[in-house]
């Protein structure tokens, strides 16, 4: 039993029983935690707004035998821009889905917590949400211990592109070295951007121009790496995100 007081980001909610919701939090202290928020679907609930997805709050959870119960909550940052723009909302949901898939229940992961908050901040301020997403994907992979080798060719050490991205060893192979079966052509510019994202994170992200052709190349590599690392064949929010991007 006992209680947990923690800053947490609301990743997902699901309706539960008559007026309750099951809330998946990404807490600062204990990683992913699912708790029941009682009565939050009623209009007069004091906790309705604080358990909305993409809300950063400070929460008090009571530990139960099977499920925790949300006792109190206070909004720290509601990320309003993400709720008021359809594309940003879709990206925010994608980030939450990745975090949910990446972490097992109750395994503390402060780096992932801090990373997703930085990514959501960047999403609110950056003019290119796709650039933020690519940077988040790569840094999430690194945080989880799946950093791709983007420095030079893994075989001969050459730093001149174009490269192939080797999906077996998760790294670059130049065109002069034996090209592995599971690989994809990657331009030198795309490799350089990926390297920059991994080395600098979100620092001065807005000065790193990523034209749509490069974004497409990086997105494809990242998607394969994430599928492999997180053991999922597809991420549901990607479909909606792609339909919005095509539309815009």
């Amino acid at each position: 039993m006992g209680e947990l007081k923690s800053h947490a980001l609301v990743l997902r909610t699901r309706d539960y029983r008559e007026a309750d919701r099951l809330v998946t939090f990404l807490t600062r202290e204990e990683g992913k935690v699912t708790a029941v928020a009682r009565g939050v679907r009623k209009t007069k609930s004091k906790l309705s707004a604080v358990v909305e997805p993409l809300t950063l709050g400070f929460f008090l959870l009571h530990r139960g035998k099977s499920l925790d119960t949300l006792i109190q909550g206070e909004i720290v940052k509601p990320y309003r821009k993400l709720r008021e723009d359809l594309l940003l909302f879709a990206y925010g949901q994608y980030f939450c889905e990745l975090c949910e898939a990446a972490l097992p229940e109750r395994e503390p992961s402060l780096p992932v917590f801090l990373l997703v908050l930085t990514a959501l901040e960047a999403l609110e301020s950056d003019s290119q949400p796709a650039r933020v997403a690519r940077c988040f994907e790569l840094n999430l992979l690194e945080t989880l211990g799946y950093r791709p080798a983007m420095e030079n060719c893994q075989h001969c050490g050459s730093s001149t592109g174009p490269f192939y991205f080797d999906f077996i060893n998760d790294g670059l192979v130049c065109k002069n070295c034996p090209i592995p079966g599971e690989s994809r052509l990657l331009s030198g510019a795309a490799a350089a951007v990926m390297k920059r994202f991994l080395n600098n994170g979100f620092h001065r992200l807005s000065v790193c121009g990523v034209p749509s052709s490069l974004n497409y190349e990086i997105a494809h590599i990242n998607a394969e790496l994430l599928k492999k690392a997180l053991g999922k064949s597809r991420f549901k929010s990607v479909e909606f995100l792609q339909s919005l991007e095509e539309w815009s």
Partner: peptide, 10 residues
Amino acid sequence: AISPMDGIGP
């Protein structure tokens, strides 16, 4: 309602 994480789109 649209819920990308649950695979519910337009």
